[in-house]
């Protein structure tokens, strides 16, 4: 997974986003071991402190847990992962809706447009 970080948002927030997506998309399976802070920092070309901060934040939310000696693991709580998936989907849908409304679409029109679009795909 490429990191594609841009510099105008706090890097640690972008790292959290990226790892969350990697988890909900199944790139990291529940119970998988995460690479070390140093490896991840090197892979993403970011400061290790920033990576550390992002991982601590993920740990705080429970998505990731650490075992003192063996490193960090993805949570085995599948419900939690699914809830996150929904949460992210909701955010995307919200974003989509706002943009469509900005173009002047009404809710019904959006629904019609979307079902046509999906059929065509």
């Amino acid at each position: 997974m490429p990191w594609n970080l841009n510099s105008d948002r706090p890097i640690f927030l972008q790292i959290i986003d990226k790892i969350q997506i990697d988890i909900v998309s199944g790139f990291y399976q529940p119970g998988d071991k995460l690479p070390s802070v140093r490896e991840l920092a090197q892979e993403a070309s970011v400061n290790p402190n920033t990576m550390q901060k992002a991982l601590s934040e993920l740990e705080r939310t429970g998505l990731v847990y650490s075992q003192r000696t063996s490193g960090r693991f993805i949570t085995e709580d599948k419900d939690m992962i699914y809830a996150l998936k929904e949460q992210r989907a909701q955010a995307l849908a919200q974003h989509f809706l706002e943009n469509m409304q900005r173009l002047g679409f009404q809710k019904e029109e959006i629904f019609r447009f979307l079902s046509q679009f999906l059929k065509a795909q």
Binding site: N6, S7, R9, P10, I11, N47
Partner: peptide
């Protein structure tokens, strides 16, 4: 702190 600055100004350090 770099991220603090980004959060405050919503800009890259370069800008």
């Amino acid at each position: 702190s770099v991220d603090g600055l980004r959060q405050k100004d919503h800009k890259s350090i370069d800008s």
